[in-house]
């Protein structure tokens, strides 16, 4: 058998046939491209929001801290100024100063607490539903202020209340009170339903 008579094609071996079959099958099944792996997420995106229960609750609490309508001394005047339109506490969802402590979340101890008044302050706090926060406003509520050594003045609201935020000043300007409220917002955002004691101070 010379070269001219030799067949142009050699007979295919089995392994070659298997290989060709596999390639052809793959080609037949590859008419359509696979969809992108995150295509399902692209459908969800823009339509769904994922969050945690903590964050959702905290956002709700943060933007609806209703203070109790409760003033003790000159600091209460600054607190009222904070509520009116010049400083506008309504920006934080706090414009509802509740006349009943049962509808309030935040007790602003705004002024000097005398020992004779302290049981009433404590009763207001105890009537507030959980979660609740206490903000000590001004030197007197923090430490008794200039009256700290008096026989009639309680040296600091933290003697009978768990205080979350201290706002110094005599009295603090509305700006300072607003800053204290924003610090309270930060504190609320850091709280968790799993650490209830911390969240409710």
């Amino acid at each position: 058998m010379n070269g001219a008579d030799a067949p142009f094609f050699s007979p295919a071996s089995d392994i070659d046939l298997l290989e060709g079959q596999a390639v052809n099958e793959l080609i037949a099944s590859a008419r359509q491209a696979y969809p992108d792996v995150d295509a399902a997420l692209q459908v969800v995106e823009g339509n769904l929001l994922t969050t945690t229960i903590d964050r959702m609750l905290n956002l709700g609490r943060k933007y609806s801290v209703w203070p109790a309508f409760f003033g003790l001394a000159c600091c209460a005047i600054e607190m009222i100024c904070t509520a009116v339109n010049r400083y506008d506490i309504a920006r934080f969802g706090m414009e509802l100063f509740r006349a009943s402590p049962r509808q309030a979340d935040l007790l602003i101890v705004s002024g000097t607490v005398t020992w004779k008044m302290a049981p009433a302050v404590r009763r207001v706090y105890e009537q507030m539903p959980e979660p609740k926060w206490v903000l000590a406003m001004g030197s007197c509520a923090i430490s008794g202020g200039p009256f700290a050594s008096s026989y009639a003045v309680c040296p600091g609201a933290n003697r009978f209340l768990p205080v979350d935020i201290y706002v110094p000043g005599c009295p603090p300007r509305p700006d300072a009170l607003l800053y204290g409220i924003m610090m309270l917002h930060d504190k609320i955002m850091k709280s968790s339903i799993f650490t209830k004691a911390e969240a409710a101070s």
Partner: peptide, 20 residues
């Protein structure tokens, strides 16, 4: 002004009280 049970009368010159 003060509550019942308050010890003493605070505007007396010899009044002493314990710092709380």
């Amino acid at each position: 002004l003060l509550w019942e049970g308050f010890p003493g009368h605070p505007l007396r010159k010899d009044y002493l009280w314990e710092q709380v």
